[in-house]
Amino acid sequence: MKKALPVLALALLLLLLPSRAWAAEDWQNKPIPLDVESGVICVLDGCNMVLSSCDDAAAQKMRGIIREKMYKDGMNKQQVYAYLSSVYGESVLAAPPKKGFDWVAWITPFVAAVGGAVLVYLGLEKWVIPGRAKEGEENGPAPIDSVYAEKLDEELKRYL
């Protein structure tokens, strides 16, 4: 059995070789998932559009790089993004990475919204007249005198 192992390994390698060679040709035509393209900026010619929106020669070149990294080198989306950032700088990514200082970009809008909500609450605390709402709830709306109710009906009819 031990002697058979190298033979099996060689056979497996021989089986894999053509498929690798075939794969090496095929990856050039494979489509890139939209979510990968829409996270990258077309920076090669300075058009600076999101790659998924750009069809010029520079965009095709960038797609070629992404295909190579994804399908030839077997990188996943995050690894492709890390590779592109290391080559072209962080501005190649369509959004700041969620790490280090760039967390500020992501959390500030939500912090501001929460801060705003606190301000609104404090404003209401200050402006709402204490006791008035409670009093209204307990007593309910004042009953309308029947004379006024009739008058209201008449006026409504006239207005409508």
Binding site: S38, E90, S91, A95, P96, F101, A105, T108, A112, A113
Partner: peptide
Amino acid sequence: AVFWGTIYPLISEAIRGVKVTVGAPF
């Protein structure tokens, strides 16, 4: 939030010296 995202590349460049892109994912 939209204003912040729009000007964030300038903030990043001023503080870190790195100009980032803030696009649709953000």
